[in-house]
Amino acid sequence: MSGAVVWVTGLPSSGKSTFGRALVARVRAADRPAVLLDGDAVRAALSPAPGYD
């Protein structure tokens, strides 16, 4: 079994999460496992109230 990582970068509000969700949906539709690690969700899980100051 082999795997791949797709790292999507870009400016804020440029559609990275939307693209990621669409990509995961297509991979799963092809009957392949896929996991989406969204930066906002990961940050919220690790630190519920992050401060950017």
Score class of each variant (00 low, 15 high):
P48I: 11
V42K: 03
T18Y: 07
G20P: 00
R28Q: 13
S47F: 14
G10A: 03
V35N: 06
D31I: 06
R32K: 11
A30E: 13
A44K: 11
F19S: 09
A29D: 13
R21N: 11
R21I: 09
F19L: 15
R43K: 12
A4I: 02
V27Q: 00
A29H: 08
M1T: 14
L46A: 14
V8Q: 00
P48C: 10
G39S: 14
A41N: 09
A45F: 06
K16M: 02
V27C: 01
G3V: 01
G20N: 01
A30F: 05
A34H: 02
P33I: 03
F19C: 13
V6N: 03
A25V: 06
A29T: 08
A29Y: 03
T9N: 11
S47N: 15
G15N: 07
T18I: 07
G51C: 14
S2E: 10
R21D: 08
V24L: 05
A34Q: 02
P48N: 12
A49V: 14
R26N: 14
V24N: 00
F19N: 04
A25S: 12
L37A: 11
G39V: 06
G10L: 04
R26W: 06
L11G: 03
L11S: 05
A45K: 09
A22I: 06
D31T: 09
V24G: 00
K16L: 01
A25H: 13
L46N: 08
R26S: 14
W7Y: 15
A30M: 07
A29Q: 12
A30P: 02
R28P: 01
V6K: 11
R21H: 13
R43E: 09
G20D: 02
G15P: 01
S2W: 04
W7D: 00
A45D: 12
F19M: 12
W7Q: 04
S13A: 15
S47D: 15
R26H: 12
R32M: 07
S14N: 07
S2P: 04
D53E: 13
S17R: 03
P33K: 06
L23F: 03
R21W: 09
A49T: 13
S2K: 09
V42T: 07
G10N: 05
W7P: 00
V5N: 07
S47Y: 14
V6I: 15
A29C: 05
A4Q: 10
D40A: 12
Y52K: 10
L23N: 00
G10S: 05
A49M: 09
G10F: 01
P48V: 09
L46F: 09
S2C: 08
R28Y: 05
G20E: 00
D38M: 04
A44L: 12
G51L: 15
W7T: 01
A44E: 15
A45C: 11
T18G: 13
A44Y: 05
A34S: 06
L23Y: 01
L36P: 01
M1Y: 04
